[in-house]
C-alpha cells in the first residue's frame, strides 16, 4: 500500500541536508519536551518536597519544590499511622489479579471481535463498548447489594471479581487487533494454523505494546480505587493502600506533610511498575521489530 520510492539519490540528498538541520530540530524537540515534562511533573515534585517539610512549612502556601528543611522522620510517622505492609500486600494481590484478568479477558474478546466470524458480532461489540458508557456512580448501590448477596462483603473477591472485565480494555485491544493486517490471518489459516495458535503466536506479539498498556491501565485503575474498597471492606485486614490516605484530614485542617508522605509512599510502586512495564514494551519492540 505504500508507494515505492526507489531513488537512492533522494535518500543521500536527505542525509546531507539533514545533518545540521536535524540536529537543530532535535535540540528544539528536546527542549520543548523536557520543559513540558517538567511542567507535567511539577505537582509530583511538589508532593515529594512537601512530604519532607515540617508541619509549619508544609502549610505555608507556595509551589516551591525544594524543602526549607528536611524531615525524613515524617515517613516514619506516616508508616506507623496505618498498617501499610498489610495494605500493600492486599493491594498487590488485588491489582495484580485484576490486571492479569483484564488483560486476558480483553485479549480474548478483542481477538474474537476482529478475526472471527459469528452471528451477532456487531451486538457483541456494542455490548462490550456499551459497558464503558455506564457511569460507576449510577450502578454503585446495586453493585454493592449484589456483592453482599454473593457473600463477598469484606473479602478480596469483592475487590477483584467485579473488575475483571471492562469495556475500555476490550475496545482498546480490538482497535489494536484491527491494525494487524487481515492477510496474515488468511495466510496463516491457509497454512493450517489454528485460530488460537494464530492469536498467541502471531497476533499477540504484534499488539504487545497495547497489551501492556491495557494491563498497566487495569493495574492502575484497581490500584488507585479508593471508594469501592472503602465501602465493601469492613476492617483493616482487607483494606488497600489508598485507605491510608484518608486518616490525615482533621475537621480543622489537613496534616499536609504526612498526607503527602502517604501519597508518595502509595504512588512509588505504580511509578516503578510503569518504568518496568515500559522497558518490557520497548524491549519487545526491539526484538520483534514490527514489520509492515
Amino acid at each position: 500500500m505504500n508507494r515505492k520510492i526507489p531513488v537512492a539519490l533522494s535518500r543521500m540528498a536527505w542525509l546531507r541536508r539533514g545533518r545540521t538541520r536535524r540536529g537543530g530540530r532535535q535540540f528544539w524537540l528536546y527542549l520543548g519536551l523536557s520543559s513540558g515534562a517538567l511542567l507535567f511533573c511539577w505537582p509530583f515534585l511538589w508532593m515529594i518536597s512537601t512530604s519532607l517539610e515540617s508541619f509549619e512549612d508544609a502549610v505555608t502556601p507556595g509551589l516551591g519544590v525544594w524543602p526549607a528543611s528536611w524531615h525524613w522522620e515524617n515517613y516514619l510517622e506516616t508508616w506507623r499511622s496505618s498498617p501499610f505492609p498489610r495494605y500493600f500486600l492486599n493491594t498487590f494481590i488485588v491489582a495484580g489479579t485484576v490486571s492479569a484478568a483484564v488483560a486476558l479477558s480483553a485479549t480474548l474478546a478483542g481477538y474474537a471481535l476482529v478475526f472471527l466470524h459469528f452471528p451477532g458480532k456487531k451486538l457483541a461489540f456494542m455490548l462490550a463498548v456499551g459497558a464503558m458508557m455506564v457511569p460507576f456512580e449510577a450502578i454503585f448501590i446495586p453493585n454493592f447489594v449484589l456483592v453482599t448477596r454473593l457473600g463477598w462483603y469484606n473479602s478480596l473477591a469483592a475487590l477483584i471479581i467485579s473488575w475483571c472485565a471492562n469495556g475500555f480494555s476490550i475496545f482498546l485491544m480490538r482497535q489494536a487487533f484491527l491494525a494487524v493486517p487481515f492477510e496474515y490471518y488468511e495466510a496463516a489459516r491457509l497454512d493450517g494454523c489454528g485460530s488460537l495458535r494464530f492469536l498467541f503466536r502471531v497476533a499477540l506479539p504484534l499488539v504487545r505494546p497495547t497489551l501492556s498498556v491495557t494491563a498497566v491501565f487495569a493495574f492502575l485503575g484497581s490500584y488507585n480505587a479508593l471508594l469501592w474498597p472503602l465501602i465493601v471492606t469492613a476492617d483493616g485486614s482487607r483494606r488497600v493502600v489508598q485507605v491510608g490516605l484518608t486518616v490525615f484530614t482533621t475537621e480543622s485542617g489537613v496534616q499536609l506533610h504526612l498526607l503527602m508522605c502517604a501519597a508518595t509512599i502509595v504512588m512509588l510502586p505504580s511509578v516503578l511498575l510503569f518504568l518496568l512495564a515500559q522497558r518490557a514494551v520497548s524491549d519487545t519492540m526491539m526484538a520483534t521489530g514490527v514489520k509492515g
Binding site: F140, I141, F144, V145, T148, R149, Y153, L227, L230, I231, T246
Partner: peptide, 13 residues
C-alpha cells in the same frame, strides 16, 4: 464516605 457506606449498607441490609 461513612454516609455512603451506611447508605449502601441500608440498601443491602
Amino acid at each position: 464516605e461513612i454516609f455512603r457506606k451506611v447508605s449502601a449498607g441500608i440498601q443491602a441490609g
